[in-house]
Simulated scan of single mutants.
Amino acid sequence: MTDDLLSRFDVLLADLDGTLYRGPDPIPGAAEAIRAAGERGVSTVYVTNNASRSPADVATQLAGLGFPAGDGDVRTSSQAGATMLAEQLPSGAAVLVVGTAALADEVRVRGLTVVDAAAEAAAVVQGHSPDTGWRELAEAVVAIRGGALWVATNVDRTLPTERGPLPGNGAMVQVVRTASGAEPQVAGKPAARLLREAQGDHVRPLVVGDRLDTDIEGANALGAPSLLVLTGVSDAAELLTAPPELRPDYIGADLAALTRRPDELSPGPRPGWTVQRDAAGLLLTGTGDGSADPVHDALRALCAAAWDGRPPGGVRADGDAAASVLRELGFTGG
């Protein structure tokens, strides 16, 4: 058996936007990597915090982009949120849904009743919808103040779009939190619930994502290894300053990392690079000679030095090769 990262796991719990695709386009090589994993017996469950679409709609999009995906391969935060409600409410209980029809459908599937008035609601479930307005938020606040159970499908502050980050469900949740003084139960990442449901009966999951504060923090909450790919939200600077609960086990440029050896992807000393710490911060020295991936090997070496318990400070280069790598990683001052 190939001794690469993929050989250690029996399922990939893969994030979508920023990990598999950006906007309408697949990330180069991502579909091929997922298909190759399946051919080796490692299945993929597509895990999304977005509660605005049904699993069938998500699967259709993924299949259209070349990913092997059926309805049963998708787990959404709307499914996890509706299940949390069903576990705590009697059959037929009234739930005020702040979100899309897809979220309401998940609530109904679990034997609960969807209502739109606070006076009737035993619970509130809140998910992203671009059409949510003041009246819906106000009705949720009244219900929660009256003692209704409150579940948020996710608390992502922003939502990635082609126009850049826009307000996500977490921004709307904060409005309700401020007005009600209550705290919701959370179904989606970084809470472990959604990932645990996606894992199912698999025993060796690898969480794959592009965002430290959802995908990687969620993996750590689950107690599962994680691979951060640098194709989406989180960048090198964010990675260096990440607290322990947001740190990945492996760092890759993209999903091609699945066929690299685990020790090549782990933060730590890497061939061709030396990182020293002084009063100004971190100093990268070397040329990357002997490395198959000099840019990201430099980042893995920097992470190991930055995560030693002290603030990393600034990041500087000693030499032209190191300066070029830092610029490529986004450290323009290097």
Rank of each mutant, 00 (worst) to 15 (best):
residue 106 E to Y: 11
residue 148 A to Q: 08
residue 54 S to I: 12
residue 107 V to S: 04
residue 76 T to E: 01
residue 47 V to R: 07
residue 87 E to P: 06
residue 111 G to P: 05
residue 118 A to Y: 08
residue 158 T to Q: 12
residue 73 D to K: 04
residue 166 L to V: 15
residue 109 V to P: 00
residue 38 G to N: 09
residue 39 E to I: 00
residue 63 A to Y: 00
residue 86 A to E: 06
residue 120 E to V: 02
residue 151 V to Q: 08
residue 163 R to T: 14
residue 108 R to E: 13
residue 143 A to C: 09
residue 66 G to R: 04
residue 42 V to R: 05
residue 33 A to R: 00
residue 147 G to F: 07
residue 158 T to R: 08
residue 38 G to L: 06
residue 134 W to V: 15
residue 51 A to Q: 10
residue 100 T to N: 02
residue 138 A to P: 02
residue 140 A to K: 05
residue 150 W to D: 09
residue 105 D to C: 03
residue 106 E to P: 06
residue 166 L to S: 14
residue 54 S to W: 07
residue 106 E to C: 06
residue 77 S to H: 08
residue 101 A to C: 05
residue 32 E to I: 02
residue 55 P to M: 04
residue 138 A to W: 04
residue 36 A to W: 05
residue 121 A to W: 05
residue 100 T to A: 13
residue 87 E to Y: 00
residue 95 V to R: 01
residue 136 E to K: 09
residue 100 T to W: 01
residue 92 G to K: 02
residue 84 M to D: 02
residue 98 V to P: 04
residue 134 W to T: 14
residue 127 G to F: 09
residue 117 A to K: 14
residue 53 R to T: 14
residue 85 L to W: 13
residue 153 T to L: 11
residue 89 L to P: 05
residue 139 E to P: 01
residue 128 H to L: 15
residue 155 V to Q: 05
residue 71 D to C: 08
residue 152 A to R: 07
residue 121 A to Q: 08
residue 121 A to T: 11
residue 65 L to T: 07
residue 156 D to S: 10
residue 75 R to I: 15
residue 102 A to P: 08
residue 77 S to Y: 07
residue 68 P to Y: 02
residue 160 P to W: 06
residue 152 A to W: 09
residue 73 D to I: 03
residue 153 T to P: 11
residue 89 L to Y: 08
residue 41 G to Y: 01
residue 73 D to V: 11
residue 30 A to P: 10
residue 84 M to Y: 01
residue 45 V to W: 05
residue 116 D to A: 10
residue 150 W to I: 13
residue 95 V to A: 06
residue 59 A to S: 15
residue 65 L to N: 00
residue 62 L to A: 12
residue 62 L to Q: 12
residue 33 A to E: 04
residue 161 T to W: 02
residue 33 A to I: 08
residue 134 W to P: 07
residue 158 T to C: 13
residue 148 A to S: 11
residue 74 V to K: 08
residue 106 E to H: 10
residue 115 V to C: 03
residue 113 T to C: 09
residue 150 W to F: 11
residue 58 V to Y: 02
residue 103 L to T: 12
